[in-house]
């Protein structure tokens, strides 16, 4: 089951804040525990910033999902930026090309339950994360 996504274009710093607030709202609606809400919002903040800084902006979609057992939230971060050349390296703690701490991708992956990434050089990057209710 999949409901209509809520989407936010990410082009400025202010949009990253709006993504955080939207994810928080949806997480509260889905009755995620406070700690899980915080983890998901933090992950969304990292990934939305990546979309802005490395992808040159893009689109974030947030929607509620449900499988046989439980409900959850899925967020898709899509950009049409340069893509990631070495995925394994990009997912390593401490690796960065943008002057950050290098925890965005690897850290965000640890904060969610499911994490998939599609990327190709010159064709942008799409990251999908899911957090399930306990």
């Amino acid at each position: 089951m999949k409901e209509e996504p809520r989407r936010i274009p990410v082009a400025t710093d202010q949009d990253v804040v709006r993504v955080r607030q939207l994810v928080r709202t949806v997480a509260v609606e889905a009755k995620l525990s406070l700690v899980d809400q915080t983890k998901l919002v933090t992950a969304a903040s990292e990934l939305a910033r990546n979309t802005l800084v490395y992808g040159g902006g893009g689109i974030v979609e947030v929607y509620g999902v449900r499988n046989d057992f439980r409900a959850g939230i899925r967020i898709v971060f899509a950009d049409e930026g340069p893509g990631i050349a070495d995925l394994e390296l990009a997912l390593t703690d401490g690796y960065t090309t943008g002057g950050g701490l290098g925890l965005g991708l690897s850290g965000a992956r640890r904060l969610v339950d499911e994490f998939t990434i599609e990327t190709a050089v010159g064709q942008g990057t799409t990251i999908t994360v899911t957090k399930w209710c306990r």
Partner: peptide, 13 residues
């Protein structure tokens, strides 16, 4: 906050 403090630990921060 507690919930906030748990997250950086997982983030690796």
């Amino acid at each position: 906050r507690p919930a906030v403090a748990i997250t950086p630990v997982e983030l690796g921060l």
